[in-house]
Design a protein around this nucleic acid. Structure first.
Lengths: 197, 197
DNA sequence: CTGACAGTAGACAGACCTGTCTGTTATCGT
DNA sequence: ACGATAACAGACAGGTCTGTCTACTGTCAG
């Protein structure tokens, strides 16, 4: 029955419900598109509660993006624990990312979308740089451990494929994006770990 | 002398000045960030002129993105004319794209930025899909001509690297992005043109 | 000279957004 | 039982944005 479909209400404290609503709406429809009213309605919370707990929309956006960062960090840590050899660890990171982008609710990288039209100093860009710096550092370290001849380049190239794969899902509705990205990553790792370029 | 720096006025008919101003401002600061008032001020044109020539902001955005598409198409056509072998033509396309992203005024892909937070049916997403469909088709054809074992996958992978390189420049201020992207593309082409996977 | 027309300048309407403020209700510790 | 606190509902202010409308100006054909 179309039209009778209801969204299940959010649970927890107002603070938690606000973050959950923000995560849901900001990610699905965009940080700039979704207004405060939409968020508090979804959270089932009064506007005053939002401003007493978070202080501003910007702060809520920051909390939203930081929670995404944390979630990704935890998932990657888990995947890294399962891998053994340095090379496997490098690929494991990438496969985890690729896994995520093939999920049906994937709408592209939250950081990329939130900061696509920012002027370079707003909260979206700040948190994005933190996240991306962390990801690059992680990959550089793993690439070095795996014996890459140029760890920085390899890490950056893998991030490129990751970003591009996410865009491919969103912009081109390319369902093969994940598979193609993993294949590309494997090829880049093979070349990057070869003894001499 | 800081502060005395003036922007040179735009030339041509009001229609041309409007498109030039839109191209400049929309690309530099974002389609959603820049309002009509900024555009007409830069163009040196009355608001009524904008609405009599283009009809709406959406139509101006469409014109802006279509002009970007056309410009890229022309540049690629030129580069393709210089290349000889199918493999060179494939790499030429990519090197032209990489060239562009290393330019000092590059701010990321205009289509990606304009449609980063759109809901899937607005003018930014429509023109983006046209552009990206065209680009993928072009690359698939070239990959096929070059004898790729899986032309579609190779084309998509190259687009991923292109997208990712553009993001790297914008998000991470990575000046090596172009070089690293070309190296990645070369590696992917090498693998993709190998006789059997 | 004059009338049509393209363009300018700017006020205005209507919508939307963030953030504040007032007043009310409910819960919980003591 | 009761006071404090947290949360609710919603009006309101102040700003921004798109798009319309009025009134003025200059140019050019006939």
């Amino acid at each position: 029955m179309a039209g009778t479909q209801t969204v299940e209400p959010l649970a927890g404290t107002p603070r938690e419900r606000l973050l959950a609503a923000a995560d849901e709406l900001f990610y699905a429809e965009g940080v700039h598109t979704v207004g405060i009213d939409r968020v508090i309605e979804r959270a089932g919370v009064a506007k005053a509660s939002l401003y007493s707990t978070y202080g501003s929309k910007d702060a809520l956006v920051r909390a939203y993006l930081e929670s995404r960062h944390e979630r990704i960090r935890a998932r990657l840590e888990q995947a890294l624990g399962r891998a053994t050899t340095p090379r496997d660890r490098l690929l494991a990171v990438f496969e985890t990312l690729a896994d995520r982008i093939t999920a049906p609710d994937y709408r592209g990288c939250a950081f990329v979308r939130a900061s696509a039209e920012s002027d370079g100093d707003d909260v979206a860009m700040q948190t994005s740089r933190e996240f991306r710096g962390w990801l690059v550092d992680l990959l550089v370290g793993l690439a070095r451990d795996a014996g890459a001849s140029d760890p920085d380049t390899l890490a950056r190239q893998l991030v490129m494929v990751y970003d591009g794969a996410g865009l491919g899902v969103r912009m081109d509705r390319n369902g093969e994006s994940g598979r193609q990205a993993v294949a590309a990553a494997r090829a880049l790792v093979d070349v990057g770990l070869a003894p001499a370029g």
